[in-house]
Write a protein that binds this DNA or RNA. Structure first.
Length: 421
RNA sequence: GGAAGCGUGGCAGAGCGGCCGAAUGCACUCGCCUUGAAAGCGAGAGUCCCGAAAGGGUCCGGGGGUUCGAAUCCCUCCGCUUCCGCCA
Protein backbone atom coordinates (compact mmCIF):
# COMPACT_ATOMS: atom_id res chain seq x y z
CA UNK A 1 0.00 0.00 0.00
CA UNK A 2 1.19 3.44 -0.83
CA UNK A 3 1.41 6.54 1.31
CA UNK A 4 -0.98 8.91 -0.50
CA UNK A 5 1.32 11.84 0.25
CA UNK A 6 4.22 10.15 -1.50
CA UNK A 7 2.01 9.02 -4.37
CA UNK A 8 0.76 12.57 -4.91
CA UNK A 9 4.23 14.11 -4.66
CA UNK A 10 5.24 15.09 -8.22
CA UNK A 11 8.79 13.97 -7.42
CA UNK A 12 7.53 10.40 -7.09
CA UNK A 13 6.43 10.38 -10.71
CA UNK A 14 3.80 7.81 -9.81
CA UNK A 15 1.56 8.31 -12.83
CA UNK A 16 4.38 7.55 -15.27
CA UNK A 17 5.68 4.62 -13.27
CA UNK A 18 2.28 3.00 -12.91
CA UNK A 19 1.55 3.54 -16.59
CA UNK A 20 4.52 1.27 -17.35
CA UNK A 21 2.55 -1.60 -15.88
CA UNK A 22 -0.63 -0.52 -17.57
CA UNK A 23 -2.21 1.02 -14.49
CA UNK A 24 -3.83 4.42 -14.77
CA UNK A 25 -3.72 6.39 -11.53
CA UNK A 26 -6.70 8.64 -10.84
CA UNK A 27 -4.80 11.56 -9.32
CA UNK A 28 -7.88 13.72 -8.96
CA UNK A 29 -9.73 11.05 -6.99
CA UNK A 30 -6.75 10.31 -4.78
CA UNK A 31 -6.22 14.01 -4.08
CA UNK A 32 -9.90 14.49 -3.23
CA UNK A 33 -10.05 11.50 -0.88
CA UNK A 34 -6.75 12.23 0.81
CA UNK A 35 -7.30 15.92 1.52
CA UNK A 36 -10.93 15.29 2.40
CA UNK A 37 -9.94 12.69 4.91
CA UNK A 38 -7.38 14.98 6.52
CA UNK A 39 -9.87 17.83 6.73
CA UNK A 40 -12.41 15.56 8.42
CA UNK A 41 -9.82 14.47 10.97
CA UNK A 42 -8.98 18.09 11.68
CA UNK A 43 -12.64 18.93 12.16
CA UNK A 44 -13.20 16.02 14.53
CA UNK A 45 -10.05 16.84 16.50
CA UNK A 46 -11.15 20.44 16.93
CA UNK A 47 -14.56 19.34 18.18
CA UNK A 48 -12.99 16.97 20.65
CA UNK A 49 -10.66 19.69 21.90
CA UNK A 50 -13.70 21.88 22.46
CA UNK A 51 -15.50 19.05 24.27
CA UNK A 52 -12.47 18.53 26.50
CA UNK A 53 -12.46 22.23 27.41
CA UNK A 54 -16.18 22.14 28.22
CA UNK A 55 -15.79 19.12 30.46
CA UNK A 56 -13.25 20.96 32.56
CA UNK A 57 -15.51 24.02 32.65
CA UNK A 58 -18.48 21.96 33.83
CA UNK A 59 -16.50 20.56 36.70
CA UNK A 60 -15.60 24.01 38.01
CA UNK A 61 -18.91 25.66 37.18
CA UNK A 62 -21.35 27.12 39.67
CA UNK A 63 -24.86 25.75 39.90
CA UNK A 64 -26.39 28.41 37.63
CA UNK A 65 -23.64 28.28 34.98
CA UNK A 66 -23.80 24.55 34.81
CA UNK A 67 -26.97 23.82 32.76
CA UNK A 68 -25.85 26.08 29.90
CA UNK A 69 -22.42 24.46 29.76
CA UNK A 70 -23.86 20.96 29.83
CA UNK A 71 -26.20 21.94 27.01
CA UNK A 72 -23.26 23.22 24.98
CA UNK A 73 -21.29 20.07 25.68
CA UNK A 74 -24.15 17.99 24.32
CA UNK A 75 -24.16 20.03 21.13
CA UNK A 76 -20.44 19.58 20.74
CA UNK A 77 -20.85 15.88 21.17
CA UNK A 78 -23.29 15.82 18.27
CA UNK A 79 -20.77 17.68 16.13
CA UNK A 80 -18.09 15.15 16.98
CA UNK A 81 -20.36 12.34 15.86
CA UNK A 82 -20.94 14.07 12.52
CA UNK A 83 -17.27 14.77 11.89
CA UNK A 84 -16.32 11.24 12.82
CA UNK A 85 -18.88 9.81 10.46
CA UNK A 86 -17.46 11.94 7.64
CA UNK A 87 -13.97 10.77 8.55
CA UNK A 88 -15.00 7.14 8.64
CA UNK A 89 -16.54 7.28 5.18
CA UNK A 90 -13.57 8.98 3.55
CA UNK A 91 -11.07 6.79 5.38
CA UNK A 92 -12.81 3.65 4.13
CA UNK A 93 -13.02 4.90 0.56
CA UNK A 94 -9.41 6.05 0.55
CA UNK A 95 -8.28 2.76 2.08
CA UNK A 96 -10.14 0.73 -0.51
CA UNK A 97 -8.64 2.74 -3.33
CA UNK A 98 -5.10 2.55 -1.95
CA UNK A 99 -5.36 -1.23 -1.55
CA UNK A 100 -5.92 -1.69 -5.25
CA UNK A 101 -3.08 0.49 -6.50
CA UNK A 102 -0.10 -1.70 -7.44
CA UNK A 103 3.49 -0.98 -6.46
CA UNK A 104 5.67 1.28 -8.59
CA UNK A 105 7.96 -0.69 -10.93
CA UNK A 106 11.62 0.30 -10.69
CA UNK A 107 12.91 2.43 -13.55
CA UNK A 108 15.75 -0.03 -14.22
CA UNK A 109 13.28 -2.67 -15.41
CA UNK A 110 12.86 -3.03 -19.17
CA UNK A 111 9.64 -1.90 -20.87
CA UNK A 112 7.04 -4.46 -21.80
CA UNK A 113 4.25 -6.52 -20.35
CA UNK A 114 5.14 -10.16 -20.98
CA UNK A 115 7.89 -12.65 -20.22
CA UNK A 116 9.07 -12.16 -23.78
CA UNK A 117 10.15 -8.66 -22.76
CA UNK A 118 12.35 -9.89 -19.94
CA UNK A 119 16.04 -9.09 -20.13
CA UNK A 120 18.57 -11.88 -19.78
CA UNK A 121 21.04 -11.12 -17.00
CA UNK A 122 23.21 -14.25 -17.01
CA UNK A 123 23.20 -17.94 -17.78
CA UNK A 124 24.72 -20.83 -15.86
CA UNK A 125 25.51 -24.33 -17.02
CA UNK A 126 25.11 -25.89 -20.43
CA UNK A 127 21.66 -26.70 -21.78
CA UNK A 128 21.60 -30.43 -22.37
CA UNK A 129 21.23 -31.42 -25.99
CA UNK A 130 19.55 -34.79 -26.43
CA UNK A 131 18.44 -36.69 -29.51
CA UNK A 132 14.83 -37.26 -28.52
CA UNK A 133 14.37 -35.98 -25.01
CA UNK A 134 11.40 -37.32 -23.12
CA UNK A 135 9.43 -34.89 -21.04
CA UNK A 136 9.06 -35.41 -17.31
CA UNK A 137 5.63 -37.00 -17.68
CA UNK A 138 6.84 -39.73 -19.99
CA UNK A 139 9.94 -40.19 -17.88
CA UNK A 140 8.01 -40.29 -14.66
CA UNK A 141 5.51 -42.81 -15.92
CA UNK A 142 8.17 -45.04 -17.44
CA UNK A 143 10.07 -44.93 -14.16
CA UNK A 144 6.90 -45.71 -12.24
CA UNK A 145 7.20 -42.72 -9.93
CA UNK A 146 4.44 -40.49 -11.30
CA UNK A 147 0.73 -41.30 -11.50
CA UNK A 148 -1.30 -38.49 -13.00
CA UNK A 149 -4.31 -40.63 -13.79
CA UNK A 150 -4.89 -41.47 -10.18
CA UNK A 151 -4.35 -37.84 -9.22
CA UNK A 152 -7.21 -36.91 -11.52
CA UNK A 153 -9.33 -39.65 -9.99
CA UNK A 154 -8.70 -38.25 -6.53
CA UNK A 155 -9.01 -34.54 -7.14
CA UNK A 156 -9.45 -33.74 -10.81
CA UNK A 157 -7.07 -32.04 -13.23
CA UNK A 158 -3.92 -30.20 -12.12
CA UNK A 159 -2.98 -32.49 -9.29
CA UNK A 160 -0.17 -35.02 -9.06
CA UNK A 161 0.55 -38.30 -7.33
CA UNK A 162 4.13 -39.36 -6.76
CA UNK A 163 5.01 -42.93 -5.86
CA UNK A 164 7.97 -44.76 -4.37
CA UNK A 165 11.22 -43.11 -5.36
CA UNK A 166 9.26 -40.19 -6.82
CA UNK A 167 7.81 -39.40 -3.44
CA UNK A 168 11.22 -39.95 -1.85
CA UNK A 169 12.78 -37.59 -4.39
CA UNK A 170 10.26 -34.90 -3.54
CA UNK A 171 11.01 -35.29 0.15
CA UNK A 172 14.75 -35.26 -0.52
CA UNK A 173 14.59 -32.06 -2.54
CA UNK A 174 12.66 -30.22 0.15
CA UNK A 175 15.06 -31.34 2.86
CA UNK A 176 18.06 -30.46 0.70
CA UNK A 177 16.77 -26.92 0.12
CA UNK A 178 15.92 -26.34 3.77
CA UNK A 179 19.27 -27.63 4.96
CA UNK A 180 21.23 -25.43 2.56
CA UNK A 181 19.28 -22.29 3.40
CA UNK A 182 19.38 -22.81 7.15
CA UNK A 183 22.95 -24.13 7.39
CA UNK A 184 24.73 -22.10 4.72
CA UNK A 185 22.60 -19.07 3.96
CA UNK A 186 21.51 -18.05 7.43
CA UNK A 187 17.77 -18.57 7.20
CA UNK A 188 15.59 -19.48 10.14
CA UNK A 189 13.19 -22.29 9.38
CA UNK A 190 9.55 -21.94 10.35
CA UNK A 191 6.55 -24.19 10.27
CA UNK A 192 3.51 -22.07 9.59
CA UNK A 193 -0.23 -22.43 8.91
CA UNK A 194 -1.32 -22.89 5.33
CA UNK A 195 -4.80 -21.58 6.09
CA UNK A 196 -4.74 -17.85 6.79
CA UNK A 197 -7.16 -15.00 7.36
CA UNK A 198 -8.31 -12.37 4.89
CA UNK A 199 -6.22 -9.78 6.74
CA UNK A 200 -3.08 -11.86 6.30
CA UNK A 201 -3.75 -12.26 2.58
CA UNK A 202 -4.27 -8.52 2.32
CA UNK A 203 -0.97 -7.82 4.06
CA UNK A 204 1.12 -9.31 1.27
CA UNK A 205 -1.16 -8.09 -1.53
CA UNK A 206 -3.01 -11.24 -2.65
CA UNK A 207 -6.22 -9.54 -1.54
CA UNK A 208 -8.41 -7.72 -2.26
CA UNK A 209 -7.68 -7.83 -6.00
CA UNK A 210 -6.81 -11.46 -6.63
CA UNK A 211 -9.39 -13.44 -4.73
CA UNK A 212 -10.19 -15.44 -7.87
CA UNK A 213 -6.67 -16.91 -7.78
CA UNK A 214 -7.10 -18.36 -4.30
CA UNK A 215 -8.80 -21.32 -2.74
CA UNK A 216 -11.20 -20.12 -0.11
CA UNK A 217 -12.67 -22.17 2.73
CA UNK A 218 -15.68 -21.45 4.82
CA UNK A 219 -16.71 -23.39 7.88
CA UNK A 220 -19.63 -22.09 9.88
CA UNK A 221 -19.10 -18.34 9.66
CA UNK A 222 -15.33 -18.62 9.59
CA UNK A 223 -13.49 -17.77 6.40
CA UNK A 224 -9.93 -18.84 5.64
CA UNK A 225 -7.78 -18.94 2.55
CA UNK A 226 -5.26 -21.56 1.45
CA UNK A 227 -1.91 -19.88 0.92
CA UNK A 228 -0.59 -19.65 -2.65
CA UNK A 229 2.96 -19.39 -1.23
CA UNK A 230 4.70 -19.38 2.15
CA UNK A 231 5.51 -15.74 1.44
CA UNK A 232 2.12 -14.98 2.92
CA UNK A 233 2.51 -16.45 6.41
CA UNK A 234 6.27 -15.80 6.63
CA UNK A 235 6.03 -12.11 5.78
CA UNK A 236 2.98 -11.61 7.95
CA UNK A 237 4.69 -13.16 10.98
CA UNK A 238 5.72 -9.62 11.83
CA UNK A 239 2.50 -7.88 10.83
CA UNK A 240 1.51 -5.17 13.29
CA UNK A 241 4.94 -5.30 14.90
CA UNK A 242 7.75 -2.83 15.35
CA UNK A 243 11.17 -4.36 14.74
CA UNK A 244 14.40 -2.96 16.13
CA UNK A 245 16.38 -1.70 13.14
CA UNK A 246 19.53 -3.43 14.36
CA UNK A 247 17.95 -6.89 14.25
CA UNK A 248 17.50 -6.64 10.49
CA UNK A 249 17.87 -8.31 8.11
CA UNK A 250 15.60 -11.19 9.07
CA UNK A 251 15.89 -14.25 6.84
CA UNK A 252 13.12 -16.83 6.99
CA UNK A 253 12.38 -20.02 5.15
CA UNK A 254 9.60 -22.58 5.19
CA UNK A 255 8.43 -25.52 3.19
CA UNK A 256 4.69 -25.48 2.65
CA UNK A 257 2.15 -26.75 0.23
CA UNK A 258 0.97 -23.96 -2.08
CA UNK A 259 -2.54 -23.72 -3.49
CA UNK A 260 -3.45 -21.84 -6.64
CA UNK A 261 -6.70 -21.81 -8.53
CA UNK A 262 -4.89 -21.09 -11.80
CA UNK A 263 -7.96 -19.28 -13.04
CA UNK A 264 -7.27 -17.85 -16.44
CA UNK A 265 -4.59 -20.37 -17.38
CA UNK A 266 -6.91 -23.01 -18.79
CA UNK A 267 -4.94 -24.05 -21.85
CA UNK A 268 -1.47 -23.60 -20.40
CA UNK A 269 0.84 -26.30 -19.10
CA UNK A 270 -1.95 -28.79 -18.79
CA UNK A 271 0.50 -31.68 -18.84
CA UNK A 272 2.48 -32.83 -15.86
CA UNK A 273 3.84 -31.10 -12.82
CA UNK A 274 4.46 -27.61 -14.17
CA UNK A 275 1.21 -25.96 -13.18
CA UNK A 276 -0.74 -27.59 -10.36
CA UNK A 277 -3.45 -26.54 -7.93
CA UNK A 278 -1.30 -27.87 -5.13
CA UNK A 279 2.46 -28.11 -4.95
CA UNK A 280 5.21 -28.04 -2.39
CA UNK A 281 7.68 -25.16 -2.24
CA UNK A 282 10.52 -23.94 -0.08
CA UNK A 283 10.22 -20.18 0.15
CA UNK A 284 12.76 -17.56 1.18
CA UNK A 285 11.69 -14.29 2.81
CA UNK A 286 13.89 -11.40 3.86
CA UNK A 287 12.80 -8.44 5.96
CA UNK A 288 15.38 -5.70 5.60
CA UNK A 289 16.41 -2.07 5.85
CA UNK A 290 14.67 -0.33 2.91
CA UNK A 291 17.89 1.47 1.97
CA UNK A 292 19.48 -1.93 1.32
CA UNK A 293 16.61 -3.74 -0.34
CA UNK A 294 18.08 -3.95 -3.84
CA UNK A 295 21.38 -5.32 -2.53
CA UNK A 296 19.39 -7.80 -0.46
CA UNK A 297 17.61 -8.93 -3.61
CA UNK A 298 20.96 -9.81 -5.17
CA UNK A 299 21.76 -11.83 -2.05
CA UNK A 300 18.42 -13.60 -2.21
CA UNK A 301 18.77 -14.52 -5.88
CA UNK A 302 22.23 -15.81 -5.04
CA UNK A 303 20.77 -18.19 -2.49
CA UNK A 304 18.29 -19.61 -4.98
CA UNK A 305 21.01 -19.90 -7.61
CA UNK A 306 23.31 -21.68 -5.18
CA UNK A 307 20.95 -24.64 -4.83
CA UNK A 308 20.35 -24.72 -8.58
CA UNK A 309 24.09 -24.89 -9.13
CA UNK A 310 24.62 -27.58 -6.56
CA UNK A 311 22.02 -29.66 -8.37
CA UNK A 312 23.88 -28.96 -11.59
CA UNK A 313 20.79 -27.60 -13.32
CA UNK A 314 21.39 -25.31 -16.29
CA UNK A 315 19.47 -22.04 -15.92
CA UNK A 316 19.40 -18.38 -16.70
CA UNK A 317 18.44 -15.30 -14.72
CA UNK A 318 16.21 -12.68 -16.31
CA UNK A 319 15.05 -9.27 -15.23
CA UNK A 320 11.27 -9.04 -15.68
CA UNK A 321 9.67 -6.25 -17.68
CA UNK A 322 7.97 -3.44 -15.76
CA UNK A 323 4.56 -4.60 -16.92
CA UNK A 324 5.15 -8.24 -16.02
CA UNK A 325 6.07 -8.05 -12.34
CA UNK A 326 3.62 -8.92 -9.61
CA UNK A 327 1.17 -6.50 -8.05
CA UNK A 328 3.23 -5.88 -4.90
CA UNK A 329 6.68 -5.97 -6.49
CA UNK A 330 8.89 -3.12 -7.59
CA UNK A 331 11.71 -5.25 -8.99
CA UNK A 332 11.81 -8.94 -9.93
CA UNK A 333 14.34 -11.46 -11.18
CA UNK A 334 13.15 -14.79 -12.47
CA UNK A 335 15.34 -17.85 -12.55
CA UNK A 336 14.46 -20.04 -15.51
CA UNK A 337 15.60 -23.62 -15.71
CA UNK A 338 16.44 -25.38 -18.96
CA UNK A 339 13.86 -27.96 -19.99
CA UNK A 340 15.21 -30.21 -22.76
CA UNK A 341 11.76 -31.47 -23.75
CA UNK A 342 10.60 -27.93 -24.46
CA UNK A 343 13.96 -26.72 -25.73
CA UNK A 344 13.58 -23.61 -23.68
CA UNK A 345 14.04 -22.03 -20.26
CA UNK A 346 11.03 -22.12 -17.95
CA UNK A 347 10.41 -20.15 -14.76
CA UNK A 348 11.43 -22.01 -11.63
CA UNK A 349 11.95 -19.17 -9.17
CA UNK A 350 10.75 -15.61 -8.91
CA UNK A 351 12.67 -13.29 -6.59
CA UNK A 352 11.18 -9.91 -5.81
CA UNK A 353 11.92 -6.73 -3.92
CA UNK A 354 8.69 -5.23 -2.59
CA UNK A 355 10.22 -2.15 -1.05
CA UNK A 356 8.00 -0.97 1.80
CA UNK A 357 4.80 -1.79 -0.11
CA UNK A 358 3.92 -4.96 1.80
CA UNK A 359 5.24 -3.62 5.09
CA UNK A 360 2.82 -0.70 4.88
CA UNK A 361 -0.09 -3.03 4.22
CA UNK A 362 0.88 -5.43 6.96
CA UNK A 363 2.25 -2.69 9.23
CA UNK A 364 5.75 -4.02 9.74
CA UNK A 365 7.54 -1.07 11.30
CA UNK A 366 11.11 -0.42 12.30
CA UNK A 367 12.60 1.64 15.07
CA UNK A 368 16.24 2.67 15.13
CA UNK A 369 18.31 3.21 18.25
CA UNK A 370 17.94 6.97 17.84
CA UNK A 371 14.16 6.59 17.79
CA UNK A 372 13.72 7.01 14.02
CA UNK A 373 10.70 5.08 12.85
CA UNK A 374 9.86 3.69 9.45
CA UNK A 375 8.65 0.69 7.52
CA UNK A 376 10.76 -2.34 6.70
CA UNK A 377 11.33 -3.58 3.17
CA UNK A 378 10.31 -7.14 2.33
CA UNK A 379 11.65 -9.54 -0.28
CA UNK A 380 10.94 -13.10 -1.22
CA UNK A 381 11.85 -15.77 -3.69
CA UNK A 382 11.30 -19.44 -4.33
CA UNK A 383 14.15 -21.48 -3.07
CA UNK A 384 12.87 -23.69 -4.79
CA UNK A 385 9.52 -25.17 -5.79
CA UNK A 386 9.84 -28.91 -5.31
CA UNK A 387 7.70 -30.03 -8.27
CA UNK A 388 9.29 -27.89 -10.92
CA UNK A 389 12.74 -28.78 -9.63
CA UNK A 390 11.79 -32.44 -9.86
CA UNK A 391 10.77 -31.84 -13.47
CA UNK A 392 14.18 -30.32 -14.21
CA UNK A 393 16.09 -33.05 -12.37
CA UNK A 394 14.25 -35.72 -14.38
CA UNK A 395 14.57 -34.00 -17.71
CA UNK A 396 18.15 -32.78 -17.40
CA UNK A 397 19.29 -35.99 -15.74
CA UNK A 398 17.83 -38.42 -18.29
CA UNK A 399 20.28 -40.83 -19.90
CA UNK A 400 20.17 -42.49 -23.35
CA UNK A 401 19.23 -45.80 -21.69
CA UNK A 402 16.10 -44.30 -20.16
CA UNK A 403 17.47 -43.99 -16.64
CA UNK A 404 17.81 -40.72 -14.71
CA UNK A 405 20.92 -39.77 -12.80
CA UNK A 406 20.35 -38.11 -9.45
CA UNK A 407 22.53 -35.04 -8.78
CA UNK A 408 25.40 -35.91 -6.47
CA UNK A 409 24.41 -33.35 -3.84
CA UNK A 410 21.04 -35.00 -3.54
CA UNK A 411 22.22 -38.57 -3.09
CA UNK A 412 22.75 -38.25 0.68
CA UNK A 413 19.08 -37.24 0.85
CA UNK A 414 17.61 -39.82 -1.55
CA UNK A 415 19.79 -42.76 -0.66
CA UNK A 416 19.93 -43.72 -4.35
CA UNK A 417 21.85 -42.19 -7.26
CA UNK A 418 19.84 -43.37 -10.21
CA UNK A 419 16.26 -43.98 -11.24
CA UNK A 420 15.73 -46.91 -13.57
CA UNK A 421 12.58 -48.10 -15.33
C1' G B 1 -19.42 -27.97 23.46
C1' G B 2 -20.35 -26.85 29.29
C1' A B 3 -18.50 -24.07 33.90
C1' A B 4 -15.48 -20.37 36.32
C1' G B 5 -11.89 -16.58 36.13
C1' C B 6 -8.86 -12.97 33.67
C1' G B 7 -7.55 -9.18 29.75
C1' U B 8 -3.87 -1.84 31.99
C1' G B 9 2.54 0.88 28.90
C1' G B 10 8.66 -3.78 26.84
C1' C B 11 7.65 -7.00 31.36
C1' A B 12 5.55 -7.23 36.33
C1' G B 13 1.75 -4.72 38.73
C1' A B 14 -1.59 -0.43 41.16
C1' G B 15 -5.68 2.29 39.83
C1' C B 16 -12.83 6.28 45.05
C1' G B 17 -16.70 8.18 37.34
C1' G B 18 -13.32 14.05 36.76
C1' C B 19 -6.76 15.72 39.99
C1' C B 20 -5.17 9.04 35.04
C1' G B 21 -1.58 8.71 29.49
C1' A B 22 -2.18 6.30 33.81
C1' A B 23 1.31 4.93 40.70
C1' U B 24 5.34 1.61 41.77
C1' G B 25 9.26 -1.98 40.50
C1' C B 26 12.32 -4.02 36.65
C1' A B 27 14.12 -3.15 31.91
C1' C B 28 15.53 1.22 28.58
C1' U B 29 18.08 6.18 27.04
C1' C B 30 21.20 10.31 28.45
C1' G B 31 24.23 12.70 32.14
C1' C B 32 27.19 12.57 36.94
C1' C B 33 30.41 9.33 39.60
C1' U B 34 34.39 5.34 38.19
C1' U B 35 40.82 3.43 35.21
C1' G B 36 36.50 0.34 33.32
C1' A B 37 32.01 -1.92 35.00
C1' A B 38 28.37 -2.54 38.79
C1' A B 39 26.00 0.07 42.54
C1' G B 40 24.38 4.99 43.61
C1' C B 41 22.48 9.91 42.18
C1' G B 42 19.98 13.16 38.54
C1' A B 43 17.17 13.72 34.10
C1' G B 44 14.33 11.58 30.20
C1' A B 45 11.48 8.38 27.65
C1' G B 46 4.92 5.23 25.05
C1' U B 47 1.65 4.65 20.29
C1' C B 48 -0.82 6.34 16.29
C1' C B 49 -3.23 10.48 13.62
C1' C B 50 -3.83 15.82 11.94
C1' G B 51 -0.53 20.04 11.56
C1' A B 52 5.11 23.69 8.07
C1' A B 53 5.44 24.48 13.24
C1' A B 54 3.42 25.75 17.77
C1' G B 55 0.08 22.65 19.13
C1' G B 56 -4.19 19.49 19.09
C1' G B 57 -6.40 14.73 19.01
C1' U B 58 -6.23 9.27 19.96
C1' C B 59 -5.20 4.85 22.72
C1' C B 60 -6.03 0.89 29.45
C1' G B 61 -8.33 -6.60 24.37
C1' G B 62 -12.33 -5.04 20.01
C1' G B 63 -17.18 -2.80 19.32
C1' G B 64 -21.45 -0.43 21.45
C1' G B 65 -24.11 2.03 25.61
C1' U B 66 -25.00 5.24 30.23
C1' U B 67 -22.89 10.32 31.58
C1' C B 68 -21.24 17.11 30.56
C1' G B 69 -17.17 13.49 31.72
C1' A B 70 -15.42 6.20 31.81
C1' A B 71 -9.25 2.32 32.62
C1' U B 72 -13.13 2.72 36.34
C1' C B 73 -20.60 1.39 35.47
C1' C B 74 -23.72 -1.67 31.68
C1' C B 75 -24.13 -4.79 27.06
C1' U B 76 -21.71 -7.58 23.40
C1' C B 77 -17.79 -9.86 20.73
C1' C B 78 -12.81 -11.72 20.77
C1' G B 79 -8.64 -13.79 23.20
C1' C B 80 -6.21 -16.26 27.33
C1' U B 81 -6.16 -19.48 31.82
C1' U B 82 -8.25 -23.52 34.78
C1' C B 83 -11.78 -27.68 35.30
C1' C B 84 -15.19 -31.14 32.52
C1' G B 85 -16.46 -33.29 27.60
C1' C B 86 -14.47 -34.60 22.73
C1' C B 87 -10.30 -35.43 19.86
C1' A B 88 -4.56 -36.38 16.67
Amino acid sequence: MHDPRVLLDPATDAVRKLARRGYSLDVERLERLSSGRNAAIRKADECRAEANRLQKAVKGASADERPALVEKAKETKAQITLAEEEHRLLEAELGEYLLEIPNLPADELPDGASDADAEQVRTWGTPTELENPLDHVDLGEKLGILDLGRATKLSGPRFAVLKGRGAALERALARFFLDRHTERHGYTEWSVPTLVSRATMTGTGQLPKFEQDLFRTEVADRELFLIPTAEVPLTNLHAKETLAAEELPLAYTAQTPCFRSEAGSYGRDTRGLIRLHEFSKVELVRIVDPARSRAELETLVGHAEAVMQELGLAYRVVRLAAGDIGFSAEYTYDIEVWLPSQGTYREISSCSDFGTFQARRASIRTKAKDGTRGFAATLNGSGLPVGRTLVAVLEQGQQPDGSVRIPEALVPYTGFDVLTP
